[in-house]
């Protein structure tokens, strides 16, 4: 079983509503929510996989009723408390009790451009040898779960589990989210783009030639 965020292929959602390009945020507090989240990321208390997992760990009820940036704010509050950066009392009272000992890590306005431009690459050297090359046929693991941590983070969507696919591209060796989200190490391993035929994963594919391509780590794949 996966969590509420894993919705690829789900039925029941309505129309997609296009927007013009001048709409960037939908409420005054949205840009603030984005900026607070990015600024807190610079404190170095978590990595991108930990923060994704925090959003996924919202209860299904909250995940569904919250708008996009509400999910971000809720996960941020949870992470700040989990890492000890902010206390439950401070959240409840809406005021700080003293200055944090992490204040020297605060992202300064002058550093913003540099931090955003620098990014955070996910490629790492790895001693896990690549087992596949483009053109190889593979089977995706049939259980879309974190194999190490019960209920843990994974980037294997349920709709792809158990399907047969073809390697179309090797992306090098990347940090494994299933490990990194739980602070168990970056465990880098080969990452591939894997093409699935729409007719192999959907009962009513729109077109016989359609494909879905996902980026999947080597440990998600089985040689055929």
């Amino acid at each position: 079983m996966t969590r509420v965020h894993d919705m690829g292929g789900r039925f029941g959602d309505g129309a997609v509503v296009p927007e013009t390009e001048d709409v960037i945020f939908h409420a005054d507090w949205h840009p603030r929510a984005l900026a607070i989240t990015l600024a807190c990321g610079s404190l170095g208390l978590w990595n991108i996989d930990v923060s994704r997992h925090a959003r996924e760990c919202l209860s299904p009820k909250d995940y569904t009723r919250f708008s996009y940036y509400e999910k971000w704010m809720a996960a941020l509050a949870d992470l700040l408390v989990d890492t000890g950066a902010v206390s439950r009392e401070e959240l409840a009272q809406g005021a700080a009790r003293g200055t944090s000992n992490l204040a020297d890590k605060r992202l300064a306005a002058a550093a913003v451009a540099g931090v955003l431009a620098k990014g955070g690459p996910a490629t790492r050297p790895s001693n896990v040898a690549a087992l596949f090359v483009a053109g190889d046929t593979v089977r995706i693991r049939s259980i879309p779960e974190n194999m190490q941590v019960p209920g843990g983070h994974t980037r294997l969507p349920a709709y792809a589990a158990g399907a047969e696919g073809t390697i179309v591209r090797q992306h090098g060796t990347h940090v494994l989210p299933d490990s990194n989200a739980h602070r168990l190490g970056e465990a880098p391993e080969p990452l591939y783009a894997v093409a699935l035929r729409a007719q192999d994963i959907w009962a009513h594919p729109e077109h016989p030639e359609d494909e879905v391509i996902l980026d999947l780590w080597q440990s998600y794949l089985i040689a055929l």
Partner: peptide, 15 residues
């Protein structure tokens, strides 16, 4: 959002 910004600013965690 306002509450979070206030707490984090007071704690010196965001500018």
């Amino acid at each position: 959002v306002k509450a979070l910004e206030t707490i984090l600013t007071q704690k010196g965690l965001i500018d």
